[in-house]
Design a protein around this nucleic acid. Structure first.
Lengths: 194, 194
DNA sequence: CTCAAAAGCTAATGATATTAGCTTTTGAGC
DNA sequence: GCTCAAAAGCTAATATCATTAGCTTTTGAG
C-alpha cells in the first residue's frame, strides 16, 4: 500500500523505455506495471487502456522527433538543412526504435489523441516545407517533394531497422547517397519550369 | 469429426484473407480457425505457431509481390520499367495490405523461413537492379540506388496506408512525381563521373 | 479534523496461444 | 478386404494478458 506517486507521464515514459528495448510490439501493461512497481490494474488510474498507451507513445515520438529535427535544422539552409534533417530523423529512429515505431501506430478513430498526433505530424510537414523553401518549388510541388522526402527517409529507416538490406556495411553511405539523389532530383525539377 | 482436408496452404491463404481485411495486427489463430471451420488447436497440425503463420504470410507476400513486379516490368526498359515497377509495387500493397504488412514482420532468429524470405527479398533486389541497368551506375552505386527506390516506394506505401498524408487527393500525382524525381536524380548522378 | 477524491489493491472475467492426450479417419502394403 | 500406423481432428487444461468491479488506504483541501 505504499503510495507510488505515479503519473501518466511516468507510465508513458516507462512504456517508452520498454518499447525501445523490447520492441513496440512487445509492449504490454504487465511489463509496464512491473517496471513502475505497481500491479497491472493500477495502471488504469493513469491510462485508459493499452491501446491508449500506444497512442500516447505515438504522440511522444512525434513530438520528440519534431523537436530534434527543429534543433538540427536551425541555422542551416538548402542542401545542408536537408541533410541535417534527414540524418537527424534517422538518428532518432535508431536511438528510439520503440517510440519511432509507435509513430506509425494506427490510431483508432475514437481516440482523442488523434488530433494531437495530427498536429505534430503537421508541424513536421511544415518543417520539411521550410527546408524546401530554397528549392523554388511552387506550392503544390513543394507538397509532393515533402511527401517524397518523408517517404524516402521513413522507408529507409524502417527497412534498416528490419534488417531488410543485406549487409549492414555501407548503410551510412547508402543513406547519404539517397538524400543526395533526391536532392539532385529536386534541384533538376526546380530549374525546369515544369 | 468430419475430416476437413486442410493443408498448410489453405491455412495460410485463410490467414492472408483475414490479414487483408482486418489488418495484419488483428490476425489470430481464433479467426483463422473459425474461417476454415476447425477448432483452434487443430491448426497446430498444419502450422507450428501463430508466429510461424505470420512468417509464412510474409514469404507469401514477398513471393506474390516479386511475381507481380516481374510481370509488370517485362518488355519495358529505363524510365518506363521503373515507373511500371513502382506502380505495381504500390498497387499490390494497396490491394493486399495484410500480406504486404506481413512482408515487414520481423522474423525470429530461429525461423527456418528466414532463409526463404531472404531469398525472395534478394530476387526483388535483383529485379530492381535489372531495371536500373539502363542508368549506367557502377556496381556499388546501383546498390545505393536500388535501396533508395525500395525505401521511397515502401515509405510512401506505408505512410499512405497509415493515412499519414493529409488529404487522399493528389496521392497518385504525388507518387508519380516522387518516382520522377528519383528518376531525375539517378539520371543526373549517372551522367556525372561521380 | 473531516471527508471526498485519488491511487492503490485483490478478485473475477474473457480472450488468446499453446500443450497434452484422446479418437477417428485415411491410406499404404499385405 | 484387412491391418495398422500416421495424420487430422477433437476436448481439456494451463498460462498470459487486458479489462472491469469493487474494496481500502492515503492524500489534500477546506
Amino acid at each position: 500500500m505504499p503510495r507510488m506517486g505515479l503519473s501518466t507521464q511516468q507510465v508513458v515514459s516507462a512504456a517508452a523505455d520498454i518499447a525501445d528495448t523490447d520492441g513496440f510490439g512487445a509492449l504490454s501493461l504487465a511489463k509496464v506495471a512491473a517496471r513502475v512497481g505497481v500491479r497491472v490494474p493500477s495502471l488504469y488510474k493513469h491510462v485508459g487502456s493499452l491501446d491508449e498507451l500506444r497512442c500516447r507513445l505515438g504522440v511522444l515520438g512525434a513530438t520528440e522527433l519534431g523537436e530534434a529535427i527543429r534543433d538540427a535544422a536551425v541555422g542551416l539552409a538548402g542542401r545542408d538543412a536537408l541533410r541535417a534533417c534527414c540524418r537527424c530523423y534517422r538518428d532518432y529512429a535508431r536511438a528510439h526504435p520503440g517510440r519511432y515505431a509507435a509513430t506509425q501506430y494506427r490510431f483508432p478513430a475514437t481516440s482523442p489523441l488523434g488530433a494531437e498526433f495530427a498536429a505534430r505530424s503537421g508541424e513536421l510537414l511544415d518543417l520539411v516545407l521550410a527546408v524546401l523553401r530554397g528549392y523554388a518549388l511552387d506550392g503544390e510541388d513543394a507538397i509532393h517533394a515533402a511527401r517524397l522526402i518523408r517517404s524516402g527517409v521513413h522507408g529507409f529507416v524502417v527497412l534498416e531497422e528490419l534488417g531488410g538490406f543485406g549487409l549492414p556495411t555501407e548503410l551510412d553511405t547508402s543513406f547519404d547517397k539517397a538524400v543526395d539523389i533526391i536532392e539532385a532530383g529536386l534541384r533538376s525539377l526546380s530549374t525546369k519550369e515544369n
